[in-house]
Structure formats: C-alpha cells, structure tokens
Design a protein around this nucleic acid. Structure first.
Lengths: 213, 213
DNA sequence: GCTTTAATTCATCAGCTGATGAATTAAGCG
DNA sequence: CGCTTAATTCATCAGCTGATGAATTAAAGC
C-alpha cells in the first residue's frame, strides 16, 4: 500500500508545498523484476528450496535489494503469490450462474486462470502451500472460505451435504490442476482447454447437483 | 543392501570359520528409529524443509549417526519413502480385475494404502515430489510407468484414448488424495472409506470404460 | 545548487547446512 | 582375554542462509 505512483502531486491550490518532494518510488523496474524472478524460482523449487540470494542473483541485483523492498522471505513469498490469489474477482460470475449449469463455467475459469501469465505464481503458491503442514493449513482455510463457499453458493440441499459436494468438486478440480499443470501427464497436459472442459465438466456437475451415489 | 541380519552364520560345514566375526549390525534400534523420525519430519515439512540435524535431534541421536547409516540427505529421503513405493505389489490384483468393475477396487486400494501406517511415508513422498520441478519429473515417470500402466492394463481402445483415460483416472484419484489426506477438507477427510468409495468410484469407472464426453 | 527521498551497494553478522575423518565405546566370538 | 566389527561420539570444515546497518548514488522538486 501507499506506493506513490508518479503523476500529479497533491496540493496545488495554495502556494504551499504539500507535494511529495524527493525521488519517486518504483522506478528502475527492480521491484517488479525481483517479483517476477521470485515467482519463477518459487514455482520451480518451492518455498524452502529457494533462497533470497538465489532470487537476487537470478534477478541480477544485490541481495540487500530484496530485503529493501520486502522485509523478509515470508513477505517476498506473500507478494509473489498474492496477485492470482483474489478468488473473489476470479470467481465473480460463478456464484451468480445457475447451479445446474455451473460446472462448465467453473472448469473453464480454472483453465483460463492457469493458462494465463499467473501460472508461475500459481505453481509457486501450490508448491509452497503443499510443502509444509503449517502452510497447508493456510491453504485449507483459504480454499474453504474463499473458493468453495463461492462455488457452492445457492446450491440447494442440507448444509452437510452441500459441504460434501464442495469437497467432491474440489477433488476433481484439484486433481485436474495437479495432473495437467504440476505433474504434467500426457496427453492431458497438452490437450486443448475446450477438450478438457468437455471431459471433466460432467463429473463436476454431477458432484454439484447430481445424484451422489 | 547387504545389511547382515542376525541369525545363522554362513559356513559351518568345515571347521574353518568363515562366519561373521565382530559385532552384529542393526541392533540398538537406531537405524529404524532414525527412519521413522525422518519420515515424520519429511511428511510435515517436505524435503527442503527438513535438515539432517533436525532429524538427528528429533531422534535423540548424534548428527553423524544419520550420515553413518545413510550416505547423505538424498539417500535418507530415498529410504524414508521407499517402503510404500512398491506399486507392483500394491496394485497386484488390479490389473487382473475386469475393467468394467475395476474402479471400486482401485479406489479401495488407494484408501487402504493411505489409511495404513504408510501414510507418513506417502505424505513425505508427496511433499518431497511436489516440492521441486526436478523431483516432480521423477514422480511423473514413476506414475506413468508403474501405476497408470497397471491400472489401465487390458482396458480396450486405441492407445491414445487409453492414455487419456488413464490421465482422467489420475485426476480423480490424485484429487481425492490431495483433498482427503493433504489438505484435509471436511467432511471428506473424516468420511468412512466405504462412503468415499461409493462417492468417487462411479467417476473413476466412467473414465476407465464409460463414455468420455 | 541544495534538499529530500528512494534506489543501490558494501561489509558484516551469527546461525545453520551437509559433510568428513578420527577417536571412542560396545557387542559378538574364538 | 584379544580380535573383529559395528555403533556412537567429537571436533571441524567450507559454504550458504536470512538479516542488518551504514555508506553511496541517482532522481525529483525547490
């Protein structure tokens, strides 16, 4: 927060200078470059397998720069994976869709996200989150409260059953992400998104609103 | 290999002593204790997140002991996760089962394995394998050649289609493992194995032999 | 040109990492 | 008892880790 964007200074009604005075921040594209590099490395080697010095070296930057922009490794990691982690925005249309036709939209949304430039960040987030028990707990919290709740919005049925259905949807979607983007099994990893949607949406729809047994 | 089990020495036909002479190996239950401890830590914190010294400390043992029994960290990790990784044995009956009824057996086998004492080792293996790109490649090789090939044995259809079906089965099974045992979403994580089989076997069977679209 | 602010660099810290080799102790056996 | 073998400990290595604080340089506005 409070990253001053270059542009019109604040007060110029009176002659008094309330404007920012010194050098402007976020200029010589280092911060973003460091973040991009960190994303790639976290995606490849996970959280523990990546060091700040590796990031600095790969970014062609002094190690102290990384600490200058981000207090520590945790904050660097957090900023590396925060962009794609706005489920509210990504799942905007899902909660409004008719539950009986929601599956295709869900799968399509997941695929679009993973095919986007956010892939490295998502991989980093996944590798980091699965790497340890503590981080997995945070992932669980996030998935439960911010993803599944939205996906299951206005799905009819007793709460316990809806929760179970949400879990089942998760098994298929998580499995798809793992096989296609993490483990990269062929031919699924190279299949066209439309084909993938056709293959798994049916299952997701059954878990959402179909018969459970 | 060549870990001398206490028991009858070799040659005793002649009076010549070809028998083992000195102290017997594998005694003061340290090796196994170290392995158990390593399994737990690898399962909790992943490969990179676990150090030999941590293992030694948790096992109440000098760090050099760990190096004495296992040449290095890689070998320690390999031995920590080797027990459950014998797909040939675990999947013994699957390849022989009728493809049209194979799904339930597959899911049941997976659940039995994960509910067994091997769980810690499996978690360690999974966390380690997903932790980095290089280790994920080994996982892919192993899954393709030793698991999926067996699961898809004698499933009819063109090779490309069978391969795709194998991938789809993997999405559901991997997703189930991730949600139930790694992320532990409720209520699925606490559901009875039989119930889980009923819930997902249908999907697996469709991917195995049912219509694909 | 002076000041303010931020970007950038340098030197340095204590702590942990994986690893090695020598020394010590304990068990089994003749 | 001595011999052999393995378990166990100790001291030590170079290298990397995350982190800090001071010094330097560059931009932006007065």
């Amino acid at each position: 927060m409070s990253v001053p964007t270059p542009g019109a200074p604040a007060a110029h009604r009176t002659g008094r200078s309330t404007a920012v005075r010194g050098r402007r921040g976020g200029q010589a594209g280092s911060r973003e470059h460091i973040l991009d590099t960190a994303r790639k490395l976290f995606a490849e080697h996970g959280f523990e397998g990546t060091s700040m010095r590796q990031v600095a070296r790969a970014a062609g930057v002094d190690p102290a720069m990384v600490h200058h922009f981000f207090k520590g490794k945790d904050e660097l990691f957090a900023h590396s994976v925060e962009l794609p982690a706005d489920p509210e925005q990504v799942l905007a249309g899902v909660a409004d869709a008719d539950p009986d036709r929601r599956a295709e939209l869900i799968v399509r949304t997941v695929l679009r996200l993973w095919e986007s430039p956010a892939q490295a960040a998502l991989l980093a987030f996944l590798r980091g989150s699965i790497g340890s028990k503590a981080k997995t707990a945070l992932l669980r919290e996030m998935v439960e409260r911010r993803v599944i709740s939205r996906i299951m919005a206005s799905v009819p049925g007793p709460p316990e059953e809806v929760a179970l259905r949400g879990n089942l949807v998760a098994t298929q979607v998580v499995g798809l992400m793992m096989v296609r983007y993490v483990v990269r099994l062929e031919p699924l990893a190279s299949a066209a998104p439309d084909e993938v949607v056709q293959l798994v949406a049916h299952t997701v729809q059954r878990y959402l609103t179909g018969p459970l047994t």
